[in-house]
Every structure is written in structure tokens, then in C-alpha cells.
Simulated scan of single mutants.
Amino acid sequence: MSINVLLLAGGVGGAKAAQGLALTASEQDCHYNVRVIGNIADDEEFHGLWVSPDIDTLMYTLSGEINTQQGWGMKNDGNTVLSQLQALGEDTWMFLGDRDFATHIYRTQRRRQGIRPSQICRELCTAFGCPLPIILPSDDCIQTRLSTDQGELSFQQYFVRERCTPVVNAIEFHGAQQATPTPEALQAINDADIIIFAPSNPLVSIGAILATPGLRDAIAKSRAVRLAISPFIGGRTVKGPADRMLLAQGLDTSPLSIASLYDGLIDALVIDESDAGWLSAIEQRGLRALAAQTLMITDSDKRRLMDECLAFVEQMEVSP
């Protein structure tokens, strides 16, 4: 019998978790049917083209096209186009490689033709040979806006141009209140037997997905076993600004903060072995807890962690 697994994913951590699940699902005797809901709130227009950084990171990672050294962008890519744009006086702080430009050109052309973004995502995933379907939370435009000590910034301005240095005072998802969830996202949640929150930034990656009207409620009411993987190792992130952002919001970077942010949405929390001292406190909140090696460097690391998460969930289901 097939078990439906749904991953909520954003950023590099989400892409690594997706790859781990894809490696598991590739086995002939695998009984897991995996789908991924990605973050669209980092999307922004550059040089007249619509760029979807998190969705593309997922797509490139799953298809084996990711630049593994950067964690984003395409492997074996050049910067001829960007260099020429810079020579023409364009602002080029957002790096887009030559091969990467083709993805953005295709997406933008199809959007101008009135094609649903979800359909465009499916077309791109098929073209790249993605082993897992990537689902958009909404076909509407939702964009992260950060109120910082240097003014309002888009997420890409904060993350890429300013290198995460401004202090984030508040986070908003413009367009979220008016957005409609995709039927694919609602169906994936409804069908799920297991829902996994990837070790992504809970505020701006997973938070952006949950900001889409209807998705948080659907997950809260889901019959699935729901598990989150903490993005923190010893109170710090491996990559990205999640630790700094939580501290700026008055939260600490312990596993308990992750439990609080996902209150009512998860049944279990997986934390790193270095944070094992928090297991009892997590369980006192009514959650099941597991300490594991959560650092994902190699493909073997990614698969091992996701296999451990799946085995933990299945053990939960048979335990009294």
C-alpha cells in the first residue's frame, strides 16, 4: 500500500530534504509517494523576467542540475549575459547564469500567455526530468517584504544584495490575504499520510507557504502524521539567516522556538544530536521528539536523515 508523503520546503535546506526523499522514492520496492510544496514568496522580477529562486533551487536540485558549491543556480553555468548587462549599466547584484536565464525567459513568456504558474512549473519540471512533483501553494503573486533598520526590502534585496546584514523588525507577505490556494496544494494536504516540514527558515520559507489562505487550516485539520525538522544545530543555522531573524523577533534559537512556531501544526519534532538535551522539554509540550544527525552534506546524509524521519513516523503510528 502506498503512503503519501508531503514535504513543505524552501531554500537550500528544503531542497536537500526533497533530494533525500527522492532518493528513497527511487527504490523499486519503495511504498512512498512523495510530493513537494515550495515557497513562491521569494519570487521577483529581474531584467524584465520573472524569477522563482526557491522553486528553481528545488527543480535544479531534484534534476541534478544544481550548482552544488553555491547551493543555488545551475552547474556549469556562465555569466556572459549578466556581464554584458552590467556593461550596459544594469544593476546586476542578483546573479543569474546564462543557462539559468533560459528558465526565466520560458517562465515569463508562458506567464504572459496567461498560462497558470502551476502549469508552467509542471512543464519546467517535466523538461528537467524532476523525479518529484513540485506544487505551488498559490498561482497568485505573494512576495515577502521585510521591515528592517535599513528600510523595507524584498527578500532577495535582503538576502543577496545586503547579505542578510540588516536587522529584520517585521515580516509581511504582500498579496497573501488576497491569494487563493491552488487545488493541487489543498489536494496534496488532503491526501497526505505524512507531512514533513523541511529544515527551512520557519519565518520566511515555511511561513510564506503557511501564509497562503487555507493551507495552515488544512494542515492543522489533516489526518496525517505531521513532523518538523529543526533547521538549527546547536542554536545556529548551517546556512541562511533564520537564527538572526528569530533573535530579532524576540525568539531564541532553541528547538522549543520551532515547536512554538509550528504549534498546532505538528505532532513530532526532529532535532540535531547536539540539541538532544531539549528532548524532554519538547516531549513535555506533547510532541514526540527524535534526535538525529541533521547536517546534510552528501546524498547519503540526505537520504539517511529522511529515512530516519519516515521510520520515526511509522514507529509513532504503531506505538500505543
Rank of each mutant, 00 (worst) to 15 (best):
M74I: 06
P255R: 04
Q70L: 14
Q156I: 02
N39M: 03
S118G: 09
A185W: 00
A22N: 03
I142F: 05
R112I: 00
Q84F: 12
M74G: 04
N76H: 13
G286W: 01
D91W: 00
I55T: 01
F155M: 13
R145M: 13
G11S: 11
A170E: 09
D77M: 04
E123C: 05
D301H: 15
E152M: 14
H31A: 07
I233K: 01
M74E: 12
R223Q: 14
A18H: 03
V51W: 03
T126D: 15
I219N: 06
G13F: 05
T212M: 09
D100I: 09
A224M: 02
D149R: 06
Q150I: 04
L23T: 00
L256Y: 12
A289N: 08
G240E: 05
L132N: 05
A25H: 02
A292V: 08
A276L: 03
R163V: 13
N79C: 10
A208E: 11
T182C: 01
G175H: 06
Q157Y: 02
K239A: 10
I120M: 06
G10E: 07
D149L: 14
G48I: 10
A176T: 03
A228P: 14
D301R: 03
G175Y: 07
T298W: 09
L203E: 03
H47G: 04
G277D: 08
K221I: 08
V34N: 03
